[in-house]
Design a protein around this nucleic acid. Sequence first.
DNA 1: CTGAAAGCGCTTACAG
DNA 2: CTGAAAGCGCTTACAG
Lengths: 343, 343
Amino acid sequence: MQRNKGPEKNKATSAADVARLAGVSRSAVSRTFTDGASVSAKTREKVLAAAAELNYHVNHLARSISKEQSRPVCLLAANLDKPYHNLLLDALTKQLQQDGRIVMVINASSEPSSAEEAMRRALHYRASASVVMSGTPPQELVQACVDSGQKVIMINCNDDIENVHHIQIDYADAMQQAVTLFQQAGCQALSLVSSTKGTPSLLAREQFFISAAQAKGFEVTIWRGDNTNYEDGQQAAQALLSDHQPNHAYFCITDLVACGFMDTARHEFNLSIPDDISILGFDDIPQSAWQAYQLTTFAQPYQGIANRVSDILGEQQEADLTSRLNAIPKQRNSLHKEKREKS
Amino acid sequence: MQRNKGPEKNKATSAADVARLAGVSRSAVSRTFTDGASVSAKTREKVLAAAAELNYHVNHLARSISKEQSRPVCLLAANLDKPYHNLLLDALTKQLQQDGRIVMVINASSEPSSAEEAMRRALHYRASASVVMSGTPPQELVQACVDSGQKVIMINCNDDIENVHHIQIDYADAMQQAVTLFQQAGCQALSLVSSTKGTPSLLAREQFFISAAQAKGFEVTIWRGDNTNYEDGQQAAQALLSDHQPNHAYFCITDLVACGFMDTARHEFNLSIPDDISILGFDDIPQSAWQAYQLTTFAQPYQGIANRVSDILGEQQEADLTSRLNAIPKQRNSLHKEKREKS
DNA sequence: CTGAAAGCGCTTACAG
DNA sequence: CTGAAAGCGCTTACAG
């Protein structure tokens, strides 16, 4: 319980302090705290005792400047007020931490310049890797990161910059299933509620949905809001539901959009779900499971993405630069139950 | 566009490389990148040119080992799947980043040992400060951080460890207002839906609510779930609403609880809100504003907290160790409108 | 196994 | 203003 035992007041003790107290060299204390380094049981013990007494902890930041493996990983996050991004951030931080990585989070809010700012920071911190959780930073900056020896991992973004790792979700399967679900629910006409943002993952879902629908002979009408938030779903419903037909169904490009859509359908148009209207979402945010929504949706493989990132960081030689994961369907109650008779 | 100009392939260029190319000393390049250091316009220019050519960026991590002010700040976060924590994390990361800080996020999931693990990491990284966003890490670890020169800032946690900064919300006012709102809505009996978790901020809200209610002559019955999530709200409603009286109102200790409560009230008990039942929440998570809830609630002063953290980090001499902020009332539609006639 | 030494990439008195 | 030098806290060949 004695505090301030170290030489100076309020200053962290260093390996040198420990070495002095233990009567060994600085190298010896460094080695005791390095996995697999060769130290005799005896000196190890002396060091450990001294370290405990002085409350010493290796300075990981200092270590990271001489040891490649322990350099930090930068997470370039955005939209931290949105459930999808939080779920991904949660999975990623947990996994990387478990791998013993230092993780720095860079919050690139939605301003155009800030992805750039964020990437520049990653460069400053000499991260061993940068994980771009969403958005598309300027190509030359990404290039600069790669050039300075960083691994860059982009999630759900199909820019093709040289030597960048990509983790992509295979939306083809999921969209196929979506259309099948609508079909089973007896729907006859489909609307796609999407946005003009046009990010790669949005576009992929759109395209696969449309072609899957057309392959099965469905008409698809498209409505686009500015963004993919709750409010956009409300607007969509406002625009689309005034001439709603009972056998019409709606695929909302994100769960947030779906929630807004459902609320407006219910509270403004007095429609009952799923009796009057069938809806499907995407992302499986926690709210979709709420009783008010019970939304059938597709989960992003959050843990799968985290595992893949972890694998990539561990690899010496880069194997395949792009990896694909599947979305996971979550059946709930937002689709009509009994087959409707043809109208 | 020429890559790999530096001495070695795929290795970040260092200040030495720049010095060599610019024909100046290492100190000179260091100085050009240090605010307020004295360099002539001429050498500064030479350095800048060389740096641009080599794509050089100061290694902030290396800098942080010799420069106290640029040491990182650790954010000890938890429950990253819950809106409240995300909103706080969002505000904090944005602010600290704007202050030019490196921020590391440590994800202390809900396991008991993991707050400890998290705090130990903060120690390893020699952060200049640790911000405990929730939970209460073991006292001796916090002490160790303080002893090694870190500032420790705890949010919404009234443990009293020596030399730890506290940011607390003044719940007294808000709870007073809550009771007044219920009164204005013509409610006559109140239930408090809380949890057995008993964290400091939960307890504070409970106590202030109860005493404010009693001061105005209300009876308060208390119901406690295991946690403060959506599901706990559902359970509470299940337990409490079977003998619901029209003039009975419910204060839910968090918005998440309130959402669950409302959904069950509506879908299981067929109650209409706010006609049949008045509800109040706390936190102002984005979902409370959704049309399905329209919950009147109290916002945590997210930005205020972030500002305070920023101030504390900037202070040389610690002024007051504990700062208090007010919660912000958000009026929406979950309270009964017309005064009810006495039953 | 161990210590003295050189190194990582930076900063900052110190002397000129 | 500037460079040579010492320092920050660590690691890791190298020689014994």
